[in-house]
């Protein structure tokens, strides 16, 4: 599948994408937890153990807070698109494709082929 031309090909493994979506969620959580549990604590502690008059650490805290919040939101948006747009949309496509090959299609096909294959 990896060697297929990408511009003129559509190929998707929905089950694999569901697994990847969960892995992406775990990674997103791991980075945000690292920020919340470690980096915030370090920034807070540093304010107490290393203070310099004239330097406002709150700017640094705010900058990192906004950075990691933006990262978290960005990954959440990507996971949401993967789950609720891409996987959901292709699931509908798969169902629609299955519907195309329903009993009506089978009867019509049999009817046509029946004429072709008839001994008359």
């Amino acid at each position: 599948m990896g060697n297929m031309a990408k511009t003129d090909t559509t190929s998707i493994s929905l089950e694999e994408l569901k697994v990847l979506s969960r892995a992406l969620e775990q990674q997103k959580n791991s980075i945000y937890n690292a920020y919340k549990n470690d980096i915030v604590t370090v920034l807070e502690t540093t304010k107490k153990c290393f203070s310099i008059s004239g330097v406002d650490y709150s700017n640094i805290e705010q900058a990192f807070n906004s950075t990691f919040t933006n990262l978290n939101n960005g990954y959440e948006a990507l996971i949401d698109v993967l789950n609720n747009k891409i996987i959901a949309q292709y699931s509908e496509v798969v169902n629609s494709l299955k519907q195309l090959f329903n009993s009506q299609f089978a009867n019509q096909l049999n009817s046509i082929l029946g004429i072709v294959n008839s001994k008359k």
């Binding site: 599948m1 559509t10 998707i12």
Partner: peptide
């Protein structure tokens, strides 16, 4: 892994 399990313009 995503590129292995999904091919197409939307994947790009």
């Amino acid at each position: 892994r995503i590129k292995e399990s999904w091919v197409g313009a939307d994947c790009e």
